[in-house]
Each structure stands twice: as structure tokens, then as C-alpha cells.
Design a protein around this nucleic acid. Sequence first.
DNA 1: GGACGCCTGTATAACGTTGTAAAAGTCCAG
DNA 2: CTGGACTTTTACAACGTTATACAGGCGTCC
Lengths: 344, 344
Amino acid sequence: MRVSLKDVAAHAGVSIKTVSNVVNNYQHVTPAMRERVQRSIDVLGYRPNLAARHLRKGRTGIIALALPELGNPYFAELAAAGIDAAAAHDYIVLLDHTGGHREQEILVSQGFRARVIDGLILSPIELETEDLLDRAENVPLVLLGERDYDLPYDHIAIDNVAAARDAVRHLNGLGRREVAFIGARRGRSEPAQLRVRGWREELTAAGLPADDGLVAATDGWGHADGAAAMNRILESGRRPDAVFAYNDPMAIGAMRVLHERGLRVPEDIAVVGFDDVVEGRFGAVTLTSVSPDKEAIGRLAVESVLARLGGNEMPEPRRVRADHRLVERESTLGRAAANGGGRG
Amino acid sequence: MRVSLKDVAAHAGVSIKTVSNVVNNYQHVTPAMRERVQRSIDVLGYRPNLAARHLRKGRTGIIALALPELGNPYFAELAAAGIDAAAAHDYIVLLDHTGGHREQEILVSQGFRARVIDGLILSPIELETEDLLDRAENVPLVLLGERDYDLPYDHIAIDNVAAARDAVRHLNGLGRREVAFIGARRGRSEPAQLRVRGWREELTAAGLPADDGLVAATDGWGHADGAAAMNRILESGRRPDAVFAYNDPMAIGAMRVLHERGLRVPEDIAVVGFDDVVEGRFGAVTLTSVSPDKEAIGRLAVESVLARLGGNEMPEPRRVRADHRLVERESTLGRAAANGGGRG
DNA sequence: GGACGCCTGTATAACGTTGTAAAAGTCCAG
DNA sequence: CTGGACTTTTACAACGTTATACAGGCGTCC
């Protein structure tokens, strides 16, 4: 059986509490006593029983990080950053995936999937505001990602509108005048996605078309969804000279379709993605992408949720903006000044 | 404060244990009593305290899954499969990443990173046999992946030698006679990697060269490592007509280098990867790859470790083979019968 | 009709830890 | 050498749950 404080206490000839004091670096322990107890600890190979500690302290030392999809490298990198940030605070991360499905997201937000956690970081896709109103759970919640909720929870994200505008402005600067958007989510009550909004704002400001025919809604957000959306746009008869995708996998899926149809990137159609995943740097045509500071997002999310644990004072919910920048690569290369000229 | 069994018991006017019995679906509870207690549970919104349950039962309901790198979609998909398989058994998965570094892998195997777990699934990269000999930890361990340890732990993997031979045989069948291998790990005491072995065996059996000049060792196993390795091979003066890579990201990195140098895939050089990640299906040249049954691996690993929890009888350690198949795509297309003819 | 067994429900004692309060020990001033 | 102030260590009670053992109630079998 595992060795407990009791065993160590017996071995060292002291009380249980003294051993506990040594383990917890309690201030008032004489060096002699500390060493004696420590020796017993080492000899017996004592390791604290976390379940008991958790029961006693009411904390588990675990926070959950619920992401839509681990297969998307963006989330994988985010997860890695979160795990490391948590480890720095002696916290462990329980990773979960929702598939971006509303029911799963609700389950997670209500704490029904992982019930051993002190705090929760959730990156929702389909979750609606009302789903969080009756949140019975009392563990702190921090939200991540593009969706914007008017709720008293911390929210960590980049400025998605500004980032989308950066991307579109970059395309416009290359002389592209018809910029399609791939990846509006289908069936969303309000098309309030910030990236679509940024796309629309920037185009409108530039006096360029931003009609619905240029927006392709999708069911998911993987390569295949991007490819299908690209196909749909082209089959509609539109011939945009640029595509801005909701994320990199979708952009890459779209580029595959363009390749199959003999359209050249960037000569015929420039492409910009979002998230700056590694994959985009190694295709036949490397991908220009909006690069969020993933490390910062992961770290800020963890620090944010841990801060909520401390006191009951419940400070004002915070909207934290992480940095982003546009990384230009081959998919939007060249033809900088050669605008105006058709590409016949 | 949270509501406990005691509160429910008081509300329902029964003993604590009776409430516990209802919660645990204990057999001998009258329907009337069950309903009465259940009503109190619902009214008060009781939710079991897992820390207390864990302390009492000695189980936490959590297993750890430690993978080298979440950024590699292969592992991300594996993780997703593991999480779902565990959920089917009411278990929760604690995901961890080692970076493939030996110290981290040792830490994980000794249980120093996550100490709340009932079992551990580890996919080691650099870990050596001796690191597991003095494993003090008593939680069951299941190993995953390519490395083969002669130790009394369950091991789940595909037949890596056979899979590698399949890939090389496929290339040979296309008339390719000089097949390079990308991704032998640098600094490994014995080059016992199974995939290299399969590559060598198949080539040798076919009477083709399998010398060290065709093997490119790498530090890591990402896109950039594959690209660097490909560059090194080409700069050495060798002109292989096929490349077999340790995994898909490396294969894709290699293809990028070939593209930059104006070498065509598959016309000049055919490429085969390993793992069949989604990314390989959407490049300008889709990637032929060995496709392990990830869902099965994740599921088998979880079931294996859960099986070890049950009894103390410690059955014989098992080597479980998951299925694999070769998925042929554009990177090895055509020129089937056109062998023999040089390529200019 | 009484003894026996089965079915329900209850009291109590753990599981291993930490917080509280009090006991024991130490030190110094008077 | 005694009293007081302070430091170190201890005993004990929680935290919320489940296992064990046992007490009643009821039916059943001779």
C-alpha cells in the first residue's frame, strides 16, 4: 500500500501534523526536526495523496481547457502553451474537446464533463449567450476565441475585427478588389462573427463589394470545409481575385481546389489565412496568415482563471486583448504595384 | 457552499448512506425511497464531490495520456480518440506533452508531472529501457508508439517494420530503385528504429542499396526537420528517386524543399509519409502515407490501462498490434510500368 | 407459530490531509 | 528560580464520501 503521513510519522517518531508541516514548508520547524522528518520521508518514499489534500483544501489543482478541436494545430499549440503556463503555477491542465458542438459546450460549461476542476477555460464555437446565463457551476470560467459574449466572464482574444481588416487591407494593397470570405458559420442566428465584420468593414471603407455572394458559409472549419466553400464560390460564377479564410486549414483546403482547377496562387487568386499554423509554411505555396500570439493567449487564459480562484472579491470581468500580426508569404506575393492591369 | 450528502439526507429525512445508495444506484433501495431521495437531490442540486469519492475509493477516475507533441496532428487525433474512449468508461483523460525529451518522459513515467492519476499511457521518444526499470510508481503503465521495449508493460502499436516494408515495396513497385529515408533519430545509441529497419529489410530483399548515405538523421520530427534532411541528402550529391519519411510533417517539409529546387513530385521523386494526417490530403501534391488506425490505437490504449486497474492479478504484458494500410495519393502516382527508363 | 433468511435502511468508522487550539518546550528578565 | 512571552510540537476535528456491520421489518418455510 502507499505510504501516508501516518507511516512517516511513526517512522520518524513524531506526530502526523509535524510531518505535514515539513511537507508544506511550514515556517516554525527546527532545522534538526525538519531534517529528521525529511530523512524518513525519503526513506519511505512518501508522496502526498492529492485526493486527500484536495478534499481538505477544497481545491484540486486542476483546471480544464476545453477546445473545439485538437486536430487543428492552432488549438494544439494553444493547449501546449496552456499546459506549460499552468505547470508554472503548479497547476495541471485537463484538456477536453467539444467538437464545437453546442450541447458539448453546454455540458462543459456546466461542469458535467470534468467535475474535478478548480477553473475552466472554454473556447466556444456554437455556444449562445443564454446557455451561460443559468450556469449553476461555481467554478470560475474564462472564455477564449472569436465569439463575443456580453457576460460577466473574462474573455481573452485578439482583436479579431482589426486582424481581419489588416488581412483585407493587405489584399487591397496588392490591388485585389474582389475579396471572398470563406468560413462564415452556417446557421448562426446573427452573422456577428468578428472576422466577417472586419472583412466587411474594410471592404466597405475601401468602396469595394462585400455582398453575400462573396461569403461562403461552412458547416465545419477543416480543410475539407474550406475546399467545399471554395468550390461553391467558383461554381457560383464569381471570380474573386483574393480569398480570406476563417483559418489556415480552410485556406489550405481552398488552395488545393484552386490548384485542381488550374488557378494560380497568388497570380490569379491571392489567399490569406488565419492562425499561422506550421502547415502553412511548408506547402507548395506558403500561406500568408494572421498570426495570433498563441503563447500569450494560453498564458493569459491560465493566469486569468487562476486569479479568479484566489479571492471571492470577484473583480470586474476583463476583456484581454492579445497581440496579432500579419505574416506575409507566397500566397499574397508580388504584383504589388501591378494592380489595375487585368490578369486575362 | 456546495451541497453535500448530509444536506440531502437532512432534506429527505433519511440517513447519509441511503442518499449515497441512491446516488450509486445501489440495488436494494425501494422505488418509493429512491424517488423521495432523488427529489431532494434534484431540489438541492446535489453533485457528488469527486475529491471525497476519490479519497474513499482510492481511485481518481483520471488517466494520463502523455504524448510527445500535440502540434503533430497525428497525436492530436490520437488524443481525441483516447478522450472519447475514456469517456465511454466514465474516465477522464489528462493530456500531457513531453516534447519527446527524455527527462520529461522520465518525469512522466515516474508520475511526477500528474499525480492524481489511476493509470498512464505514454508514447515515448527518447526514453530508454533502463529509465523504466526503477519505476517506483505503482500506477499501471501502457506504452505506445514505435519504440520497442523489452519490459513488462503493455505496448500498443502497429507493425512498424511491416508498414515500412509496405511503403518501400510500393515505391519499388513503381520502379523506384534509390529510396532515401528521412527521420532516423540523431544520437540514438542503437539505430533500432523499426521503420528504418523495415526500410532496410525491404530494400535489401530487393537487392537495392540501403546504405547510410540514403538515411538522413534529424533532431526533431517536424516539417522543418524534414526539409533540412531533404536538403542535406540533395546536397550530398545523391539523387534518390524516392523518399520515405518517418512521418507526414517531415514528408511535407521534404516536398517543400523539392518544390523549391524544381524537382517534381512524383515524376522526379516519389514521396511516402507516415501517419496519414489530414494535411497530407490537401497539399498541391497529395501525400501517399501509411495510415495507422488511430482510433483503434487510442481506444486500445485506454482499454488496456483500464484493464490493469481492475484486478491485482497482473496478467501477462500484452503486445497489441493495431491495423495499418497504405493510402496511395498523388505523391507516388503513375509511371507504374514505366520503370527501367531513366528520367533524363 | 416460531425460527430463519432476505430485504431496507442506519450508525459508525475509515480514507489522508490540513486548520485550530492547546500543550509542551525554550529563553530571558526580574 | 519563577513568571511571562514566545516558539515548536501535538491532539483532535473536520473535509465528503463509501464499506462494514448491524438493526428492524417482512415474508416464508417447516
